[in-house]
Simulated scan of single mutants.
Amino acid sequence: MTAVQPTLKSFPKPSQLPVPAGAEGWEQLYPYNLVFGNLSGAEDEKFWFCDSQHWPTVFKPFETIGGEFAVKCLGQYNTRHLLIPPANGIEFKIHLGYLYMSPVPVPEDQIAARVPEFERRAATTSRTGRACSSSGAPRCRPRSPRWSSLASGRCRTWCRSTTS
């Protein structure tokens, strides 16, 4: 009889991940504000996920600026520009060299007040994009003759002439 492994219904908490042999003290390589301060406290109870889609490899200590910049900009854009109703940005940390993110929720009583402004901003963005693409505004047209030939339906001819 074989033992059945329990299935996880969530991502593992950072505190549940074992430190590989030889990697003890990895926290000292990264800035203090990027590593989990207390893995048994409230920080560990949040929903954290490893963003291995965009950052599939371990961050070298001096390369974390890329992740810091990208995640901070994403959080600010969602919070200040789009005003996504239930989101107030993204918190991020490094654990075992990988980037972990956690959404920062908006208090329940403030979500309804954010919806009308979000709808207004989203509608403006959508209208502007449709108007630009349908009018053929200069900023939407290809600038290069090569791209113009691709856009005008001569793609097959151009592709054949460049590959043969």
Rank of each mutant, 00 (worst) to 15 (best):
I84L: 13
C132P: 00
L99N: 03
P116N: 08
L8I: 04
T128W: 01
R146M: 02
R156L: 07
W55G: 00
S148H: 06
K46W: 14
A122T: 09
A23F: 12
Q16C: 01
E24V: 10
F92K: 03
L82C: 08
K93C: 03
S133W: 03
E68H: 09
P85Y: 11
L17W: 05
N78R: 04
K93E: 03
Q5V: 12
P142M: 05
R146K: 06
Q28K: 15
P14C: 11
C159D: 09
S161C: 07
D51P: 04
R141H: 01
Y30C: 03
E63P: 00
V35H: 03
V71I: 15
T125L: 09
G153F: 06
G89Q: 07
Y77S: 05
S15T: 08
R80V: 08
T124F: 10
W55N: 07
L29K: 13
I90Q: 01
S144W: 09
V19E: 10
A131S: 12
P145L: 10
P103E: 07
F49D: 00
P56E: 08
L17F: 05
G75N: 07
R130H: 12
F69N: 09
S40H: 13
G67T: 10
R154G: 14
A23E: 15
R80K: 14
I90N: 01
Y30G: 02
A3K: 03
F69G: 02
G67R: 04
Q110G: 01
P138R: 13
R146A: 07
P14H: 14
R146Y: 14
P61E: 10
E108L: 12
T79S: 13
S149R: 09
R139P: 00
S10F: 03
G67A: 06
P103I: 13
P31G: 04
F11P: 02
H81S: 09
G66M: 06
H81W: 10
A137R: 08
F118W: 15
L83P: 00
C73E: 11
C73K: 13
I84V: 15
Q110Y: 10
F59E: 04
S144D: 15
A42Y: 05
G75F: 13
K72T: 15
D44S: 12
F47D: 10
Y77D: 06
F36G: 02
S135G: 00
C73V: 15
A113V: 03
F59C: 05
M1S: 14
F49R: 04
R154D: 08
K60Q: 11
P61G: 10
L74A: 14
C155K: 12
G136D: 08
G129V: 12
F59H: 12
E91D: 15
P116L: 07
L150T: 01
Q16Y: 04
G37Q: 15
Q28V: 02
Q53I: 12
G66A: 08
T79W: 05
G22A: 10
T157W: 05
V35Q: 02
G67S: 07
P56N: 11
P103F: 13
S161I: 04
A151W: 06
V104D: 01
